[in-house]
Amino acid sequence: MRSFRFSALALPVGALPLAAGWGSGSYGRPPFGVGTVALGVHWIMDWLVPVCVAAVLAFGTAGTGLDRRIAASGASDLRILWWRTHWTAILGSIVACGSCAYSLAGMSGEPFPDLLAPGLAGVLFALLVANVVVSRFAAGPGVALAAATSITGTVAIGPYLTPFTDVPAIDPTLSNWMRGVPDRGSILSSGSIAWIGAGVIAVVLARMCPRDIAWLPWTAVEDASDDSI
């Protein structure tokens, strides 16, 4: 079933000037020994890519797909069905993240795994957020877009903007650089594990509470909307 709002793909276009600027080293003040291009490509992979994925998936999948009244009667739960119904968009996001990391690594000289690992972690977190926003709360496209990008943006960007606290960041390398330390961090960080773990817990809680979709308010309102009640 076709189930994706393809106009959502236009959303990342708005981020292209920012990506081009960062990628060309026009912004940022890295610590001594770190190039502006290296800093820029980490920004792209750690901030822009996850936020763009959250925007595309949340806006693209909100309120689309099979008639909910039919889908809700399926053997699979709607919230699980989201993953199946939108697997092409999800896979596309992951492939886009990988190819983005590959091309940026080639351009900047940064190690490919150093860009791929935090990028993938951010994308995975963005997917989990989009799933909860769209399939648990059934938000409309605009609200889903705002909610998913806000949450993902807070997690993807926030830790780097608060360098004097211990908020776990997905990319320890960028976290060091933002604090003026030129050292590289580990590829798999405790921040990645913590945030992805929180996302998984949110998805599981969204599935379990309430346990039956009949009790979700959106289902009742939507199903009865054709009859004014």
């Binding site: 009244r69 009667s73 009742a220 199903d223 009859d227």
Partner: peptide, 18 residues
């Protein structure tokens, strides 16, 4: 009539509304 509650009743019967 429209708005009498028919669709609501069917939704409950279908297990879609509580």
């Amino acid at each position: 009539r429209n708005g009498a509650g028919k669709s609501t009743l069917l939704s409950i019967l279908a297990g879609l509304a509580a």
